[in-house]
Lab assay of single mutants.
Amino acid sequence: MQIFVKGLTGKTTTLEVEPSDTIENVKAKIQDKTGLPPDQQRLIFAGKQLEDGRTLSDYNIQKESTLHIVWR
């Protein structure tokens, strides 16, 4: 499925993911596209910070959802 990651600059990155992907895995995909290391990424969805060990489905993140990224 496709999801979007929007940064503070307003730039949006598209990712191809599975609902079973962990947040850690998603951060690795973001690094592949942007070069930003996972330890500098904070992902937010529906006002919650996403924890590395959880999956996208744990947070009810579905296709075409938009996550927000904040740099540490």
Rank of each mutant, 00 (worst) to 15 (best):
I61G: 00
F45S: 03
R54K: 14
T14G: 05
K27C: 02
A28W: 09
K11H: 15
V5Q: 01
L15N: 00
S20V: 05
D21F: 07
S65K: 03
P38T: 14
T34Q: 04
D58F: 13
L56M: 05
V17Q: 01
T55G: 02
K48M: 14
G53H: 14
S57F: 07
Q62V: 13
T34S: 06
Y59D: 01
L15G: 00
T66Y: 07
D39N: 12
L8M: 12
K29H: 04
P19K: 07
K11A: 10
D21R: 02
P37C: 07
P37G: 05
A46P: 01
K27T: 02
I61H: 00
K6I: 14
V5M: 04
H68V: 11
Y59G: 01
I69C: 05
L67T: 01
L15Q: 01
N25E: 14
K27Y: 03
K48R: 11
T12V: 14
G7N: 09
Y59Q: 03
D58W: 09
Q2L: 15
A28L: 15
A46Y: 08
K29W: 04
L50D: 00
G10A: 08
E18F: 14
I61Y: 01
S57H: 08
R72H: 14
A28I: 13
G47K: 05
T13C: 10
K6P: 02
V5C: 03
N60H: 10
D52M: 05
R42L: 14
T9I: 10
G7T: 13
L8S: 09
D52L: 05
P38F: 11
Q62M: 11
Y59P: 00
I44A: 05
K29N: 03
N25K: 14
I30F: 07
P37N: 09
E18D: 11
P37M: 07
T55C: 05
T14W: 08
D32C: 08
K29R: 08
T12S: 09
G47R: 04
T66F: 07
I30R: 00
T9C: 13
T14M: 12
V26A: 02
I30H: 02
V5N: 01
L43F: 03
G47C: 06
M1W: 07
V5K: 01
I3N: 01
F4T: 06
A46I: 05
L50E: 00
E18V: 13
E51H: 08
V5R: 01
V17R: 00
L15V: 08
M1V: 05
P19G: 07
G53F: 10
L15R: 00
K27G: 01
D39S: 13
I44M: 13
E24H: 12
K33M: 13
E51Q: 10
A28Q: 14
P37W: 10
L8W: 13
L50I: 04
L15W: 03
Q40I: 09
K11Y: 13
I3Q: 01
E16F: 13
F45R: 02
Q31E: 08
E16C: 10
I23E: 00
T66I: 12
R42K: 13
P37A: 11
K63R: 11
V70C: 08
R42E: 13
I23C: 02
L8N: 07
P38K: 15
G7K: 04
G47A: 04
T14D: 04
D52C: 04
P19V: 07
I69G: 03
T13P: 03
Q2D: 05
G53C: 06
S57R: 12
S57V: 06
